[in-house]
Design a protein around this nucleic acid. Structure first.
Lengths: 354, 354
DNA sequence: TCCGAGTGAGTAACCGGTTTCTAGCAGGCT
DNA sequence: AGCCTGCTAGAAACCGGTTACTCACTCGGA
């Protein structure tokens, strides 16, 4: 434990935190504001503001005096006050149900990078899967921001529609609504590519390892499969889940199903299934082919490497900023963009032998 | 592409975005402020403020009138204006070099959850490994926040020290500085546990797969190994890196080194080494033992499952909020907390046979 | 020399809240 | 009746910036 060489200093209106310090001189420094700088430089606050914002209408000699005073006082304009006066915060919010989901981590990263490059800050709000909190969370966040990127798969459409005018400018992730810009992953197209790949390898009996029943991304995948199965192949389904353990647990059932190919809800499940099948002595892809979905970083490293549909997650975040940015800049026609996953054929799929 | 049923509406001072709408009535709604509510309810702005903040000194009948007016106008107080008036934003910033690092993802998640539970928002700033930008980024962020959690392994100590008073309240991650609260992972202790485990299994020739030379977490691990090796075991070192591929590439060198145990810089490297050794027909742990570091989610699922030192990453974020929160609440003595990783013995280590 | 245009900097009105101070009024006590 | 107390709600002063407006001054041209 450290001895407190410094201590926290509170004071002024509202008893706000002024910093750690050793005396009053540091207090003065911590509270430097535009008025103090103006006094120190012997000019008006307007002039200080103009200098700080680089307006060229200030005489060089005056500007120099202001900058000197600002440096001496360690002055930096309050972003909060600026935001209030300007009516914009140069901040956007990302609202996600769950930060541990790699999908949202990548959206976050792409968004952070793209928005940061354009000088915007990113506020992040996690609803922790509590749908009932999502609405108030989003409104809360919006009130300190210029716009919102919302990933809210479970919020009822009626609630969302009511929310839209209060959240705009708004970009939706993985969900569409008339009149609102959105970015989605076309899971159906990804499934279609996987199925086409398996059919081309001669597979006619496919088993789907279903994800969480409540999740829309599961039902989208399942719906696509059901639509495609029409006479082209036999489709069976095993209730599974979203984790390695879920996939591992159903390996026996998969082996006994008579299917020659497995489409797993996602890569984790596929990975679990691979592991389970390996333990049962079932050869992949010799006896059975396995596909995942998502292309998580580890999909390349399973044995055998996993054939999967790669979701362009970074692109999603980057595009989200792009759409939001154009909205912030001027009126635009809302656009719904869908990204087609990319089929990655690796070692876990092979020609059907039965 | 959607037809633009709605369009963007701009107007008012500063030409700020007012929302998508169909007409002027929506504009009024979007710009509802405390004055409008006060007028609608026939009271002063002060009274509206008191009602919105739940101050009990307003007559129930008046409060009801205010709330009705607020609802009718879809009024919600501007958080920016509140922040300015109150001198606090109920927001904290997390500054990290790289969001794709799982370590920081988990810190982010823990911090987001803990701060959110206490009604605080989280602003996230990523320096993208540009040390020179980090300082201005941090100051920028701090100006719209009440406090900062800073993970900045590469920023020179002198710069950091100069920054501290301007960033306070501040919590440092994985780095200590006299007088500043900090949270670190005790990598040396983790290495010590791994070494003790390997020694107890009879290993006396250990090879270290080194991480990126510039990284402090690599040098901390290496230093600890060198300190411990003193006569107790023979230590060799192979320059490697931080990725699966790096580990995979040095498998041959490992096999030829004569060492009976491998301590990899991290789990990814260990995983790559496992994969490479498997391809070379080297049995793990029969012929050689392998350990990782971090306990990434996949460490449980490698073949064999990876013995590693688990870094308590979620705890780090949660504790960071705890330390920041106490600083925001009142003066505190800064404290430097170190977390000892937890040794997880799995299948990749076994008794030395040579 | 006089006038108009152009320019630089200050004044003051915002942005949208919070809060201190105070006035007004009701009620209780002597 | 008169005075003191307590409570409610409004007036006004903040928080820390930005900017429209204005005014004084300079310079160029007639």
């Amino acid at each position: 434990m450290f001895r407190p060489e410094r201590f926290c200093v509170y004071g002024g209106a509202g008893d706000r935190f002024l910093g750690w310090g050793l005396g009053v001189d540091e207090q003065v420094r911590a509270t430097a504001n535009i008025r103090r700088v103006a006094e120190a430089a012997g000019v008006s606050r307007a002039t200080v503001s103009r200098v700080m914002n680089g307006h060229a209408t200030v005489a060089p000699e005056l500007a120099e005096r202001v900058l000197t005073a600002a440096r001496a006082l360690d002055y930096a304009p309050s972003q909060v006050a600026r935001s209030l006066a300007l009516g914009r915060t140069a901040t956007i919010a990302l609202i996600v149900p769950d930060l541990s989901n790699p999908m949202f981590q990548d959206v976050l990263r792409g968004l952070s990078l793209a928005a940061g490059a354009d000088g915007h800050r990113l506020l992040i709000a996690e609803s922790n899967e509590q749908v009932e909190d999502e609405e108030v969370l989003a409104l809360e966040a919006r009130r300190r921001c210029d716009g919102v990127v919302l990933a809210s798969p479970r919020l009822p459409t009626a609630d969302l529609e009511r929310l839209v005018p209060q959240l705009a400018p708004l970009v939706l992730i993985n969900r569409t609504l008339a009149g609102v810009p959105s970015l989605s992953v076309d899971y159906a197209a990804g499934i279609q590519d996987l199925v086409a790949h398996l059919l081309s390898l001669g597979h006619r009996r496919i088993v789907y390892l279903a994800g969480p029943p409540a999740s829309t991304s599961n039902s989208e995948r399942l719906d696509a499969l059901v639509r495609l199965s029409n006479n082209a192949f036999a489709l069976t389904q095993i209730a599974c889940g979203a984790t390695f353990e879920n996939g591992h647990a159903v390996a026996g059932e998969v082996a006994g199903s008579g299917a020659t190919a497995v489409i797993a809800y996602n890569d984790m499940v596929a990975f679990g299934a691979l592991s389970g099948l390996h333990e049962l002595g079932v050869d992949v892809p010799g006896q059975i082919s396995v596909t995942g979905f998502d292309d998580i970083p580890f999909a390349r490293f399973t044995t055998p490497p996993l054939t999967t549909a790669a979701v362009p997650r970074n692109t999603l975040g980057k595009q989200a900023w792009h759409q939001l940015h154009t909205q912030l800049t001027g009126p635009t026609a809302p656009e719904a963009v869908a990204f087609r996953p990319r089929l990655l054929v690796r070692g876990s799929t092979g020609r059907s032998t039965s």
